[in-house]
Design a protein around this nucleic acid. Structure first.
Lengths: 161, 161
DNA sequence: CCTACGTTGATGACATGTCAACCAAACTGC
DNA sequence: GCAGTTTGGTTGACATGTCATCAACGTAGG
């Protein structure tokens, strides 16, 4: 193992800043969402993903993949949301093993009630704090990191590879 | 409540990208850290914060504030880390209620063993994927969002206020 | 002093997330 | 068809985080 190459000042600033922003943003968005709509962020994400779908329903594994959750986690979470009447489980027509998660009317109503306030909070705490250039930079930088982590691409951003 | 103002394409790209990057980065860094050093990210953060301190020890509440954790969470976590011999609790000399968390030799050894690999992973998955301009943008943008959330500053980045 | 009130940290009950074991249905090749 | 394997999902045990509560202590005002 070579001697470690620590972060220089600029790198450290970006890394620590990113993590602190992350944490504060999470805390605040979760707080407001719970207060205004009675939903946790995971709740909201599930409802939101389902509502963006044409049929308001998704295979459990499909939803888990989109959210980057384990099937186990999603299964537990869906059970809890089912208890609260936000979603239901249906059998899958094409695969006897499968189960389909569907939004209930109450679930749809919950996202629709929550969404405007949540988007406004995201705007207030993040979007409106960014210059257009920063917004673009965040978008492209995120995408590049995602591509790298999902193995679609390697190499330094400058390298055309 | 006015009609909601949804995110436009650029905003949506930044927001979704940020969240996906966040999740993937977390999963990967946590995975490598656990595999290489047997530490969770919270473990590492505690040890790291303690090791950056002159005396290798901090008041529980001080550490909780730095990490943006609740005292309760930290208290529970310290108990678990104490079981594993990574930290100890000491009485506070100046305040009979207080307790001080201190790194044990094993704890110090654990961070020192973990740090090079962890920093390398941060570099590989994030830092090295960013152009210098993106790095700076991430730093300043984070700081601005942090300042806003901690009530130090308000207003749009352009507005000199 | 001493009393009222805020702070510090621990604790237990509970909510949530992870991990591994498991079952049943669906493929696979013969 | 059918044994062996893979896949989709559930489950229970356990790890972790949150919330309300509590006891001990500190601080300020009489």
């Amino acid at each position: 193992m070579d001697e470690p190459r620590w972060l220089d000042e600029r790198e450290d600033r970006a890394w620590r800043g990113y993590r602190r922003m992350r944490r504060l943003l999470d805390l605040e968005l979760a707080r407001e969402l719970m207060q205004d709509a009675g939903l946790s962020e995971p709740d909201y994400d599930v409802l939101s993903d389902l509502s963006e779908t044409p049929e308001q329903r998704l295979r459990l594994s499909e939803l888990a993949d989109r959210m980057l959750w384990s099937r186990s986690r999603l299964s537990h979470h869906i059970s809890r949301m089912q208890q609260r009447g936000l979603v239901t489980r249906e059998e899958c027509a094409t695969d006897g093993r499968g189960s389909v998660v569907a939004l209930t009317p109450a679930g749809r109503q919950a996202v629709e009630a929550a969404a405007p306030g949540h988007v406004a909070a995201v705007r207030r705490h993040l979007i409106d704090r960014l210059t257009p250039a920063e917004m673009s930079a965040l978008g492209t930088l995120s995408q590049r990191v995602i591509d790298h982590l999902t193995g679609r691409v390697t190499g330094h951003p400058e390298a055309k590879d």
